[in-house]
Design a binder for these strands. Structure first.
Lengths: 217, 217
DNA sequence: CTTCACTTACGTAAAACACGTAATTCAAAT
DNA sequence: ATTTGAATTACGTGTTTTACGTAAGTGAAG
C-alpha cells in the first residue's frame, strides 16, 4: 500500500485526482490539500510515501515549497504535475528536489506508472522529455546552475530595490529622489546590474525582473 | 440527460473531470478533448448541451476560442474552469461568451451546481465573486471594453511588428535596418504605440507585450 | 591587513525618449 | 465623389537613459 498526499490549488483538479487515485488498489490517499500553508501541517501529521504536487507556475515561491518539502521530508517522493512543459520548469523542479515530473500530455496511466516508478526508487519524467537530454543537462547544471536560480541572489538588496522601483515605471530621477541618491548613482546601479546579469537591453532586465518575481506584471 | 463535452489541455485534469462526471446520473460525457484543434472538430460532430472549458491563461488565443465556440454553437453553454481567479479573467471570458465560471476554489459540488444552473438557462459564477459586483462591471464594460480586450487589436500589424522586435532586445537601429525604414520611423512607431496604449514608460510596454503574448518572456 | 564586493558618484559620447510637425497612402464613411 | 481618419513614413529639438570608464569610501571576509 502506497500512502499518497495530493496538493493542488485548483480545487477541481484536486477532486479529480483524488477520485482517480482512490479507486486504485495498492494506493491510499492519505490527505488532499489545496493551500500551501495547510500543506506543511498535513505533511507533518501524515507520513506519506509520495506527494503529488500540481504546479501552475514556475515562481520562486513554488520552487521554494518543493525545496522545503524535499529537505524536511526526504523519505517522501515528490511527483510534480504541471501544466507547463518547458525544459526550464522540469529542470528547476528536479533541481529543487522533485523525483518525478508529469507534463500536461500525461494521462492517468502515466500517473500510475510514475507513482509505481517512484515507489520502486527510480525517478520518473514525462516521456516527452528524453532521459538522454535530461541527463545531459542535469550534469551540466548540477553546479553551475548559478545562471538561473541564483541569479537573483547575486543581486544585492540595494540592486534589487533599484530594479523594483524601475520595474514600477519610476524614472531614474524619481528613484534617485526616493532613495536620496544621485541620478548618476541610480544609473551606476543599473549598469552594474546589467553587467552582472549579462543582459543586453533594458527589455531583458524587465524580463529578468518578472521571471524572478521582483517586478509585478 | 445532459450531454457534456470536456476540454482541458492538462491530460490529467481531463481524466479526472471525466471520471468525476461520468459517475453522475443525468450527465453524459459526450467527448473529452485536450487539444484546441481537435475541439472544433468534436464540437461539429457531437451535439452537446454544455462544454466544460479549462483555462490556464488569459491570452487572446484562449479568449478567441471561446468567442468562436460561442458564435458557432450558440446552443452549447460554455462553462469555464480556471486556475486564475482574477476579475479580469472572469469578465473577459464572460464577455467572450462563456455562461459560467468556476474559480480554483470551486469543488465538485460547485461544478455539479454550475452544470445544472446552466442547464436551467441561468448563468453561474463562482461564489467568491458576488453577482452584484459582476453586474455592475458587466454593465460598464458591455461597450467600452475597448480598454482591455481590444488594446492589442488597436495596434496595427506594423506596430505589433515593432513591439515584437523591440521585445526581443533589438535596438531601434537594428529594427530600422531589418524593416528598411529610418530609425526615426521606428521611434515614431514606438511613440504612437505608447500614446495609443497610454503607457508611461518602456517598462510598461514590455509588460503590455508580455501580457498580450507578443513578447516572449 | 589586504582583498573584494557594494554603494556612491562623475565624465563623455551614443542611443533612446518626449513631443511636435508633416507628407503620403489607403480604406471607410458620408 | 469627397472627406475623414488612421497608418506609415520621417524629421527637429531638447531631455533622459544607456554604455563604458574611472574612482573614492565602507564594510565584511579571508
Amino acid at each position: 500500500m502506497i500512502n499518497i498526499g495530493i496538493f493542488d490549488e485548483h480545487r477541481l483538479s484536486l477532486d479529480g485526482a483524488s477520485k482517480l487515485l482512490s479507486d486504485v488498489e495498492e494506493l491510499k490517499v492519505a490527505f488532499i490539500c489545496d493551500e500551501k500553508v495547510q500543506l506543511k501541517a498535513k505533511m507533518k501529521s501524515n507520513p506519506i510515501h509520495l506527494l503529488l504536487l500540481s504546479m501552475y507556475d514556475c515562481s520562486i515561491k513554488s520552487l521554494n515549497l518543493i525545496v522545503q518539502l524535499a529537505v524536511n521530508y526526504p523519505k517522501t517522493k515528490i511527483l510534480i504535475i504541471s501544466i507547463i512543459n518547458s525544459e526550464e520548469m522540469i529542470l528547476k523542479t528536479i533541481k529543487a528536489g522533485a523525483k518525478g515530473f508529469l507534463g500536461k500530455e500525461s494521462d492517468f496511466n502515466d500517473l500510475i506508472e510514475a507513482i509505481f516508478t517512484l515507489r520502486n526508487g527510480h525517478d520518473y519524467y514525462s516521456k516527452s522529455i528524453t532521459h538522454l537530454l535530461l541527463n545531459r543537462y542535469i550534469k551540466n547544471l548540477k553546479e553551475d546552475d548559478v545562471t538561473q536560480k541564483s541569479e537573483l541572489s547575486t543581486l544585492s538588496s540595494r540592486q534589487v530595490e533599484i530594479v523594483k522601483f524601475w520595474g514600477n515605471s519610476f524614472t531614474n530621477q524619481e528613484i534617485a529622489d526616493k532613495l536620496f541618491i544621485s541620478v548618476r548613482t541610480v544609473e551606476s546601479h543599473k549598469n552594474h546590474i546589467m553587467q552582472k546579469l549579462n543582459l543586453k537591453s533594458t527589455v531583458d532586465l524587465v524580463k529578468f525582473g518578472i521571471k524572478n518575481n521582483i517586478i509585478e506584471i
